[in-house]
């Protein structure tokens, strides 16, 4: 751990001079305030999850993952996220491009419509698919006739997950791309770069942090979503249970140790965040170093 910390110290303190940072006292006060707040709201609940999960020892903790139903739930959750995240990523980039790079009437309305899935209660977001595809719903009778299963099967779970994670990438990118403006892209265009080229070479490197956070949030929520999925899943053991639903089942079975053990698995997604950030940081540093080298050597530009 000491190594990575030292690295990040080196990485961030390069450009800061006295004029652009605060006195040490202010700095440490702010750090203290943030740590207390995050400690209260993040570390303590996290510790509580793990203390409950490990309450009956390490053996009981790992036994919770060996159960076939648990494995089936993990598989289903991974599958759901593997579909929902890329689809929403694609949408998010397209929407952010249209909204941030162009001026048009009704933009605020469109942004608010994109936000909408957040404000829909998970209870209702499951319900809307029931109203659409349920046996008593609009398309239900037709689907039943053709033996197509959407709700109480995997497609319904995926749809509900896409719905609840719909805005993440878009909302993460829109303010970022708006703050960045369009000058760089316009310059690239004027210099003769194609549309795709501009996007890949100029825009994407600029928005990588927003994109990463968007994907991380979207993925975390896709894997952790309970309410909406619970409505459309049907809770069939080993078949349509996702990890959060499996956690609920275990808890209802008075098996809290296993319930919290499986839940702690989701908490460990934080490790994924850690890894993803480190990779992006490392890559961009390498690129920057390489860029500096070439610039110094041949003055390409």
């Amino acid at each position: 751990m000491a190594g990575t910390v030292a690295l990040s110290v080196a990485a961030t303190s390069i450009t800061r001079t006295r004029a652009t940072t605060e006195p040490a006292l202010v700095r440490w006060t702010l750090i203290g305030v943030v740590l207390v707040f995050l400690g209260l709201f993040l570390a303590v609940p996290l510790a509580a999850v793990f203390s409950e999960a490990l309450g009956k020892g390490v053996a009981a903790y790992f036994a919770a993952f060996r159960e076939p139903d648990a494995l089936a739930a993990i598989r289903l959750t991974l599958l759901t996220a593997a579909i929902a995240v890329p689809v929403n990523l694609l949408f998010g980039v397209a929407a952010a491009w249209a909204i941030a790079k162009f001026e048009f009437v009704g933009k605020n309305l469109l942004i608010t419509l994109i936000d909408l899935p957040f404000s829909v209660s998970p209870v209702v977001s499951g319900l809307i698919y029931v109203l659409l595809f349920g046996l008593q719903g609009w398309l239900g009778p037709w689907l039943a006739e053709h033996d197509i299963k959407i709700i109480f099967a995997v497609p319904g779970i995926v749809l509900a997950t896409i719905f609840v994670t719909f805005p993440f990438v878009a909302r993460e990118l829109i303010p970022l791309m708006q703050a960045q403006g369009t000058e760089e892209e316009e310059a690239a265009r004027v210099l003769g770069a194609g549309g795709w080229q501009t996007f890949w070479r100029i825009t994407l490197p600029n928005i990588k942090w927003g994109l990463l956070y968007g994907v991380i949030l979207c993925n975390a929520r896709a894997m952790g979503e309970f309410g909406a999925v619970s409505v459309v899943s049907g809770h069939v053991r080993g078949l349509t249970n996702t990890v959060p639903l499996h956690v609920e089942i275990l808890y209802n079975e008075y098996n809290s140790t296993a319930a919290f053990a499986v839940a702690s698995l989701l908490a460990m997604l934080a490790l994924v965040t850690l890894a993803a950030k480190s990779i992006v940081e490392w890559k961009s540093q390498r690129q920057m170093a390489a860029g500096k080298r070439t610039a110094a050597e041949g003055k390409v530009r």
Binding site: Q136, A144, I151, F152, G234, V236, R237, I249
Partner: peptide, 20 residues
Amino acid sequence: IRQSHGGSSKQARAVIDGLE
């Protein structure tokens, strides 16, 4: 035999809405 468990009326609703 597959099992599905949940609140009683929530389960009934699922059957009404097409859980087979």
